[in-house]
C-alpha cells in the first residue's frame, strides 16, 4: 500500500465507515419488551398470591415459572426471535438467564450428556454465576462486619 496508514489511523478510518447500532430505538425496544416480561412476572406473582402463597413463596415460584417459559421458548426457537427485536430487553430478565443456559446445552447435545451438555451448559452463564456468587459473598461479609457494630 502506497498510502500506508498506521494501525491507529486505519482503526480511526474504519470507525467512519462502520454504522453504529441504533442506540435509541434499541433502548426503546429493550424497555418495551423487558417491561412486558416484568409485567407478566408481576401478574404471575398476583396469581400465586391469589392461590394462597405468601409473598416470598409467590416471588420464588414466579422466578421458577419465568425460567421455565424462557427455557421452553428457547427450545421452540421462539426466544431468539423475540431477542433479535428486544436485545437487552430479553437478556436482562431472568428469562434471558434461562436462554443463556439452555441454548449451549441444546447445541452441545451432539457431544453427549457429559462432555457435551455437562461441560458446556454454563459457557455463557458461567461468568454470571461465578461473579454473582462472588459478589454476594463479599456483600454478605460486609453486612456481617457492619452488623457487628
Amino acid at each position: 500500500m502506497k498510502n500506508e496508514m498506521t494501525n491507529k489511523e486505519y482503526n480511526e478510518y474504519i470507525k467512519t465507515k462502520t454504522p453504529n447500532s441504533k442506540i435509541f430505538s434499541n433502548c426503546a425496544k429493550a424497555f418495551l419488551v423487558g417491561g412486558i416480561i416484568c409485567v407478566i412476572g408481576q401478574c404471575i406473582i398476583w396469581l400465586y398470591e391469589k392461590w394462597g402463597l405468601d409473598k416470598e413463596s409467590a416471588a420464588t415460584c414466579t422466578s421458577i415459572t419465568l425460567i421455565f417459559f424462557g427455557a421452553l421458548l428457547t427450545g421452540l426457537d421462539i426466544y431468539p426471535k423475540i431477542a433479535k427485536f428486544a436485545g437487552a430487553g430479553t437478556i436482562v430478565p431472568i428469562t434471558g438467564f434461562a436462554n443463556s443456559v439452555v441454548s449451549p446445552a441444546l447445541e452441545a447435545k451432539t457431544e453427549g450428556m457429559v462432555l457435551g451438555v455437562g461441560a458446556k451448559i454454563f459457557t455463557i452463564a458461567g461468568p454470571v454465576i461465578l461473579y454473582g456468587i462472588f459478589a454476594s459473598a463479599i456483600a454478605g461479609t460486609v453486612y456481617w462486619i457492619v452488623s457487628l457494630f
Binding site: 447500532s21 426466544y79 431468539p80 431477542a83 441454548s103
Partner: peptide, 13 residues
C-alpha cells in the same frame, strides 16, 4: 460465535 438459540443481537457490521 454463540449457540444458535442464544438470544442476542448482531451488530450492523
Amino acid at each position: 460465535r454463540n449457540p444458535l438459540e442464544y438470544g442476542g443481537q448482531r451488530t450492523p457490521s
